[in-house]
Each structure stands twice: as C-alpha cells, then as structure tokens.
Nucleic acid binder design. Structure first.
Lengths: 148, 148
DNA sequence: TCTATAGATGCATTAGAAATGCATGATTAG
DNA sequence: CTAATCATGCATTTCTAATGCATCTATAGA
C-alpha cells in the first residue's frame, strides 16, 4: 500500500553553496596564506571549473581577495571570525523569496509567504551564529589540509 | 565588472510541496465538504497528474481522506486547526538531512552538519506555528474558491 | 447489471536548471 | 617572453522534478 513512485525529496542546498563553504573553510584553515583554486579543487576532488566561477562570485561579493598572475591565489578578505555561514548561504542561495506566488490563484489573501519568509530568517539566524572559524570541531581538525 | 554567468540561485521549495499546500488549503477552505482532485487542479490550473500523486501521498501520510468512485473526492483527515504547515513540509520535503557529507573530505572534523540540522529545525519550528486554518489572512479570503 | 465518475498506480517522457567542460582572454612574477 | 594564475563566455552534460499517458480499481446511481 506504499507508493511505488518515489519522489527524491529535496530541501537541499546546492553544490554551489557546498563548494563555496568548503573553499572558504579551506582558506580559513590556511589563515592568511595564499592558496590557488586548483589546490582547493584537488584537495576536495571537485570540478575546478565550477569552483572557479564560485570563487569569482565570492570575490565580487567581498568574501575573498584574489590575486592574478604567477604565484597568485586567494585569501579571505576578512578574518574568519567575522564571516558567518549565514552570510555565505544568504549570498550563494540568493536573497530572493523561498516561494514563488506569481502564478498562485490565492496569493492575494494567503499568509504563507510571510510565514515562509519568517522561517527562512530563522534558518539563517542559526547559520549566522556560526563563523568560518567555528567550522572545525577541534583546533587541528583540518590540519590534514595543510599536508599536500 | 559583474558576472555574466548567472546562477539561478535556489533555496526554493519544490512544486510538489507547493501543490500539496494549495490542495490542503483548498480542502480547509471547504471545511469538510468532499472535493475532487480535478476540481482543485482546475482551480489552480495545475497538472492533474502531478496533483493526483501528491494527494495519494498525502492520503498515505494521513493528511487527507480519499473516497473512490462516483461522487468520491477528498477531505482533510483532521481538522485544519490541527495540521501545521511544518508537518506538511516536513513530509513533502523529506526528513533527511539538508547536506550530504558522504563525499566531503573534511566531514570528520566539520561542525557544519550540526549547524545546518539546527537551522533546519528552526525553519520548521516557525512553520509549525502556522496551521492550515491560519493560511487565510481574512476569514473570507478564499471565498472565491467556492464559487465554481 | 451496466455505466459513468472518481481515485490508484506504473511507466515513459519532457523540461529546466545545476553542474561541468572547454576554449580563450587578462594579469603578473621571474 | 613565458609560465602560472585568475577571468569570462559558451556549449554540453547530467540530474531530477514535473508532466503525460495508459490502465486498473472502486463506487454511486440509472
């Protein structure tokens, strides 16, 4: 009596956000040192192309500072303790509304948009309590990132 | 100096959840009366096939009570005041984790899974404060649903 | 009993967006 | 001048939600 037609239920973050966080955490672990995109991509075995564009984006948004040319690379634009997960997710997942009521017939008198908006804020509020510098459970949790 | 390569940033709910909520709100507005799937699909101009499976799912989950055969239809299985938006979303978007750390190299010492888990709960907690019976801004906001 | 109407179910297909790959340009150290 | 690195645009692939179609089951009423 169970549904055969299984829906892969979501409510997941995009890989875009995933990679952004991994990159930022990597930079935070290197505490100021210049790191190349290639290095991060290889460390996580993820698409360098995709990561490149994400870094681009993070650079324009003021999260990282990029340096071109030989011996170039990335570094956090601000201290890791001043960047929250919420700030990052807010940016990578967009600031737009969670729901699209443009085609809904009951949008007029419906209170759900407000409720979802509030829920989203509550979600981000929790993420705002966590900083890049808090991502590691223990001080040396990400030590292996240094060992190339 | 802006990125040409635009990422359609998400963090959106699926249409599956969207339709589920619309259907439940429709039923709540009809307060006990039997309503057909076709009727809801036409009222919102959405895919009857998709809605059919969603209703199926909602039936199995105990949100609605379906009646087959001629003059059959749907009704809420419980009072609208006892069904929260959070309960519905929890079901339609799945109870699984928000992030997939299975392939992440730093999953061991990373605290983000816990943070996201907490954020998700905060999100749902807000949605749990809202019941189907609260969806309408005013008592007669959805009156036009009756006028077929 | 027969028929019309409703939900139940499975499978195939489409659509849309995220993710990826590729090619090329721009910048800088040595 | 060259190698290394980020910057950018476009094409392609991949994934999965969304949809469509066909058929089965159940029930009311003529």
């Amino acid at each position: 009596m169970q549904l055969e037609y299984i829906y892969c239920k979501k409510m997941k973050l995009t890989r875009y956000t995933d990679y952004a966080l991994r990159a930022l955490i990597y930079l935070a672990a290197h505490d100021g040192g210049l790191v190349s995109i290639r290095q991060i991509a290889q460390a996580h075995d993820i698409s360098q192309n995709h990561l490149m564009k994400i870094i681009q984006d993070l650079g324009a948004a003021g999260f990282v500072k990029t340096t071109r040319g030989r011996h170039g690379g990335l570094a956090l634009a601000r201290p890791a303790a001043e960047i929250t997960i919420g700030q990052v997710v807010r940016h990578t997942e967009g600031d737009s509304r969670l729901v699209d009521c443009s085609t809904c017939r009951i949008a007029e008198g419906c209170s759900l948009p407000d409720v979802f908006s509030e829920a989203r804020e509550a979600f981000l509020a929790v993420l705002d309590k966590c900083h890049l510098s808090d991502a590691a459970r223990t001080p040396d949790a990400f030590r292996h990132l240094f060992v190339v």
